[in-house]
Design a binder for these strands. Structure first.
Length: 803
RNA sequence: GCGGGUGUGGCGGAAUGGCAGACGCGGCAGAUUUAGGAUCUGUUGCCUUCGGCGUAUGAGUUCGAGUCUCUUCACCCGCACCA
C-alpha cells in the first residue's frame, strides 16, 4: 500500500525541486519555436491573492506546461503592477513609506503564487516601481512627447473628490470613480494628455489581424466608436461667423429646423454682443457646468436649453433661416460641439423640438407620422421635401449631398471617433514622475534621456491636497531644478503617471527583463513578440488592453520594437463569485481565501477545482463541497498506485479509452474547455476503478494528461512508479485516431424519431449501410409488417426508421 | 435606449442538427468498519401501470431541434444624449 496522499509535503518538495532545476525559465537560445504565454501581472494589494488570480494563472499555466512538453521554448513570466492608489492610501494611513508597503505586499504575493506551483519564469520578474523599470516608462513618455503625442491642456477633467485625483474617461463608470465609487465631478485642470485619438484608426484596423475573443473586439470597436458622416458649415445671419456641425445624416439637411451648440461652445462668447438674452444664457451655462456627469446622465431624458435670441443660422441647401439654441444634450467634446437638428429623423432632436415648439419636417418618407414620433430606422426610406435629393434612397442622398457640399465649399466628408485623448496626469505621489521641467524661458523641456530615471523624492507626507496639486509640489528641493536647455531655474512637473503607464509595456520588458540599454533588446523582442496568448479580465478591455495596444503601435511606429500588435490571441476568464452567487467582497462576507483552501485540500486540488468548477469564460459561484470533490478525485488518482499491474503497455481493451482521453484532453485544453478535459480524466479513472486494475502504460498516459492541471501529485507518482525523467522533461502524449473506436458500437434505434431500442453494430458500417440493420432481430420486431418509408442511418450513433 | 451574452435536474454544468442531463456536488441504498464527516459498489430529471412529459416562452424548418429561423419573457455584462 502506498503512503496516504499528503499534498503539502509533495507540493513543497516539487516546488523546491523545480526552483533548483530552473526548469521553467525561458531558454536564452532562439533555436526552438517560441511560445509566449501571458497573464495580467497582479497589483500586489495588501489583501493578498484573491481566488480570481489563480483562475487565469492556472489556465495559462496549463497551456505553458503543455507547450513545453510539445517542444516549445516557453516564456511564461510574472511581475508586479505595483504603483497605485491603494498602496499610497495605506501608507498615508499608517505613516509608512509606500515603497516599503509595496515590497511587503510583493513578498507576500510571491510567496502565495509559489505555493500554487505556477510554472512562472521567476528570473524575469518585473516591478513597475523599480527605477530600472520605470526609467523606460519615462523614456516612452518622452518619445510620445517628442512626437507630439503628449501635450498639456487646460480642460475639464473627471475629478474624483474622494481620491483627490483626476481620472481618465475609461476610469469613470456610470458617473462614478471606478476605484472608490465616489461621484465624479468636472473640474478644469491643466493636464498631460496622450493623443490616443491619433491611433483610433490603427487600433481599429489592428483588430482584424488578431485572434481576440469576439466580445473583446466588439467592446473595443464600440469604445473607439467610429462613425462616418460630414461636416457642414451654416452661416450665421448678419455676421461673418460660420457654425460648423458634424452629422452622420447629411442626407437630412433639408429637414434641419434649428441648431444646437454645447453650452461651452466658443461661438457663444463671440456672439455675446448679438445675444439679447445674455443673462439667461449665462445662467444656463453655469447650471450646466455645475452638473456632474452623473446628474447629466440622470437628467438625460428631460431636454433643457435656451435659444440664443438675436442669432439665426442659414441652412446652406435651401437658405432657410433657423434658430440657434444652447443645450447640454450636445456635447462639447464630440464632433464640432454643434449640431443641426432634424427632429423628424432623430429622437433627441424630436424631443427637444416638441418641448420648444419647433417645426418638424419630414425629409425621408416611409415611416409613421413624424409629428408623432421620429422616424430614424430609415433603411428603405426615400427622400422627400428635399429639392434635388427627392426620390433618392438614403444611401444615394448621402453621396449626392456630400458631393454638393464639397462643390459649394460648405462642407466635406468626415469620420469621427468617440474615443477621447487619454488624461495622463495624476495628482498623487505613488506613480512615475513625468520627466519634464518647466522653464520660464524655454517652456516645457524634456529631461535628457541620460538623466532618466527621474526618481521620486523622499517625503514625509503623501497626503493629496484639496487644491488639486500633487503632493510632490510641496517638496521644493525636488521641484526646483535647472532647465536642461538654458541652464536657468526651472520647475519639475509634479503630476505623476497613472497606474496604466507601467502596465502599458510590461509585456515587452519580459522579453529582456534586465536590459539597461533599451526597454528590451530588439533581437529578443524579434524572437519573443508578439505575445502568443494573453488571458485576462474583461474589465480591462477598454483600459489596459487598449492602452497597451496603443503604446505598442506607437513604439512600432518609431522603430523601437519590431511588431505592430502586442497580442496575437486574447481570451478572458469569468469571475469567481461567492457561494451565494454574489460578487465576492469583504462587506458581503463571502470571500474565499486561497491560503485556507490550499491548507485544506492542497494546491493541486485547488487548481483542479478552479478549472473544473464550470465553463472557463463564465461567472461561477464557489462551492467548498465541489472543491473537496476535486481533492477526492486526486485521492482516487493517488490510490491507482495500489492497483498497478506489472504490465508495461496499455492493455488492448483499454486502448480506445486511453487514446480517447488523450485526444479529448489535448483538444479541450486548447479550447480552454478545462472542465470537460478534467471530466474526461475522471471518467477514465472511473473506468480503471471499475476493473480494479491499471497497467503502467495506462497510468503514464493519465499522469501526463493531468500534469498541467495538477503538476505536483503527478510528478510525485511519476517518480514513485519509476517512469524515468520528471514529467516536465517528457513529451506531450499523442493519440492514434485509428485506435479511438472499438469494433462494435451501440446504435440507438428510433421509430419516427423515438428511441425504441439499442443494438450493437459493427463500427465499419457506413451511412449507406443502414438497411443491413433491418435484418437485426430486435429491429425486425420493432418494425413488424409496417412498410419502411425512409431510413436514416448515422454511423456510430443511430438508425431512424420512418414507417 | 444601443451593443454583447445567458436561460438545461435540488446545485455547478455536458451535449460537430442524431440516444438530453457526461463529469462533479448534494441525496438515497448497500458493502466494509467499533464508528464514519473515510473508502468501495449501486442508484438518483419529472409523472407513472403500459407508457408519457421534459432544455425560459410561443410558432416554424427537419426523418430528427437544447442546438437552426422568427416571437415573447427573464436575468447578467458593457456603453449610454457620440448627432
Amino acid at each position: 500500500m502506498s503512503q496516504p496522499y499528503n499534498p503539502e509535503k509533495i507540493e513543497l518538495k516539487w516546488q523546491k525541486n523545480w526552483e533548483q532545476a530552473h526548469c521553467f525559465e525561458a531558454e536564452a537560445s532562439h533555436e526552438k519555436p517560441k511560445f509566449y504565454a501571458l497573464i495580467e501581472f497582479p497589483y500586489p494589494s495588501g489583501a493578498g491573492l484573491h481566488v480570481g488570480h489563480p483562475r487565469s494563472n492556472t489556465a495559462m499555466d496549463i497551456i505553458a506546461r503543455k507547450r513545453r512538453m510539445e517542444g516549445y521554448n516557453v516564456l511564461f513570466p510574472i511581475g508586479w503592477d505595483a504603483f497605485g492608489l491603494p498602496t499610497e492610501n495605506y501608507a498615508i494611513k499608517n505613516h509608512v513609506h509606500p515603497a516599503g508597503v509595496t515590497k511587503k505586499n510583493i513578498d507576500h504575493f510571491r510567496e502565495q503564487l509559489k505555493r500554487i506551483g505556477f510554472s512562472f519564469d521567476w528570473s524575469r520578474e518585473v516591478d513597475t516601481t523599480d527605477p530600472a523599470y520605470f526609467k523606460w516608462t519615462q523614456w516612452i513618455f518622452l518619445q510620445l512627447y517628442k512626437k507630439g503625442l503628449a501635450y498639456k491642456s487646460e480642460m475639464p477633467v473627471n475629478w474624483c473628490p474622494s481620491c483627490k485625483c483626476g481620472l481618465a474617461n475609461e476610469e469613470v463608470v456610470a458617473g462614478k470613480c471606478e476605484r472608490c465609487g465616489a461621484e465624479v465631478i468636472r473640474r478644469v485642470k491643466s493636464q498631460w494628455m496622450l493623443k490616443i485619438t491619433d491611433y483610433a484608426q490603427k487600433l481599429l484596423d489592428g483588430l482584424d489581424d488578431v485572434d481576440f475573443i469576439e466580445k473583446v473586439k466588439v467592446q473595443q470597436r464600440n469604445w473607439i466608436g467610429r462613425s462616418e458622416g460630414a461636416e457642414v458649415d451654416f452661416a450665421l445671419e448678419d455676421t461673418d461667423e460660420k457654425l460648423r456641425v458634424y452629422t452622420t445624416r447629411p442626407d437630412t439637411l433639408f429637414g434641419a429646423t434649428y441648431m444646437v451648440v454645447a453650452p461651452e461652445h466658443a461661438v457663444v462668447d463671440r456672439l455675446r454682443a448679438r445675444i439679447q438674452n445674455w443673462d439667461e444664457v449665462v445662467a444656463y451655462r453655469e447650471a450646466a457646468a455645475r452638473k456632474s456627469d452623473f446628474e447629466r446622465t440622470e437628467l438625460a431624458k428631460d431636454k433643457t436649453g435656451v435659444e440664443l435670441k438675436g442669432v439665426r443660422a442659414i441652412d446652406p441647401v435651401n437658405g432657410r433661416s433657423i434658430p440657434v439654441y444652447i443645450s447640454d444634450y450636445v456635447l462639447a467634446t464630440y464632433g464640432t460641439g454643434a449640431i443641426m437638428a432634424v427632429p423628424a429623423h432623430d429622437e433627441r432632436d424630436w424631443e427637444f423640438a416638441k418641448k420648444f415648439g419647433l417645426p418638424i419636417i419630414e425629409v425621408v418618407a416611409g415611416g409613421e407620422d413624424v409629428q408623432k414620433a421620429a422616424y430614424t430606422d430609415v433603411a428603405d426610406g426615400v427622400l422627400v421635401n428635399s429639392g434635388f435629393l427627392d426620390g433618392l434612397s438614403v444611401a444615394e442622398a448621402k453621396k449626392t449631398i456630400i458631393d454638393w457640399l464639397v462643390e459649394h465649399k460648405v462642407g466635406e466628408r468626415k469620420v469621427n471617433y468617440k474615443l477621447r485623448d487619454w488624461v495622463f496626469s495624476r495628482q498623487r505621489y505613488w506613480g512615475e514622475p513625468i520627466p519634464l521641467v518647466y522653464c520660464e524661458k524655454c517652456g516645457w523641456v524634456p529631461v535628457p534621456e541620460e538623466q532618466l530615471p527621474v526618481l521620486l523624492p523622499e517625503v514625509d507626507n503623501y497626503e493629496p491636497t484639496d487644491s488639486g496639486e500633487s503632493p510632490l509640489s510641496k517638496i521644493e528641493s525636488w521641484v526646483n531644478t535647472t532647465c536642461p536647455h538654458c541652464g536657468g531655474p526651472a520647475k519639475r512637473e509634479t503630476d505623476t503617471m497613472p497606474q496604466w503607464a507601467g502596465s502599458s509595456w510590461y509585456f515587452l520588458r519580459y522579453a529582456d527583463a534586465h536590459c539597461d540599454t533599451a526597454l528590451a533588446r530588439y533581437d529578443e523582442l524579434k524572437y519573443w513578440m508578439p505575445v502568443d496568448w494573453y488571458n485576462g479580465g474583461m474589465e480591462h478591455t477598454t483600459l489596459h488592453l487598449l492602452y497597451s495596444r496603443f503604446w505598442n503601435l506607437f513604439l512600432y511606429d518609431i522603430g523601437a520594437i519590431p511588431n505592430k500588435e502586442a497580442y496575437q490571441k486574447r481570451t478572458s476568464h469569468g469571475m469567481i463569485l461567492g457561494a451565494n452567487g454574489e460578487k465576492m467582497s469583504k462587506s458581503r462576507g463571502n470571500v474565499i481565501n486561497p491560503d485556507d483552501t490550499i491548507a485544506e485540500i492542497g494546491a493541486d486540488a485547488f487548481r483542479l477545482y478552479e478549472m473544473f468548477m464550470g465553463a472557463f469564460d463564465q461567472a461561477i459561484p464557489w462551492s467548498t463541497e465541489g472543491a473537496r470533490g476535486c481533492r477526492r478525485f486526486l485521492e482516487r488518482v493517488w490510490r491507482l498506485q495500489d492497483m498497478l499491474t506489472g504490465e508495461e503497455r496499455v492493455r488492448p481493451e483499454m486502448e480506445a479509452s486511453v487514446h480517447g482521453m488523450i485526444k479529448k484532453v489535448s483538444e479541450d485544453y486548447e479550447r480552454m474547455k478545462y472542465n470537460t478535459a478534467i471530466a474526461a480524466m475522471m471518467s477514465f479513472v472511473n473506468e480503471l476503478y471499475a476493473n480494479s486494475r491499471v497497467s503502467r502504460g495506462e497510468l503514464r498516459a493519465l499522469l501526463l494528461c493531468l500534469n498541467p492541471v495538477a503538476p505536483h501529485i503527478t510528478e510525485e507518482m511519476w517518480e514513485a512508479c519509476g517512469f524515468g525523467e520528471p514529467i516536465y522533461k517528457q513529451k506531450w502524449p499523442t493519440w492514434d485516431e485509428g485506435k479511438l473506436v472499438a469494433d462494435e458500437v451501440e446504435i440507438a434505434v428510433q421509430i419516427c424519431g423515438k428511441v425504441r431500442a439499442r443494438i450493437m453494430a459493427p463500427t465499419s458500417l457506413g451511412r449507406e449501410d443502414g438497411a443491413k440493420l433491418l435484418e437485426d432481430e430486435t429491429v425486425k420486431k420493432l418494425v413488424g409488417d409496417k412498410p419502411v418509408k425512409k431510413l436514416i442511418f448515422v454511423p456510430g450513433r443511430l438508425l431512424n426508421i420512418v414507417c
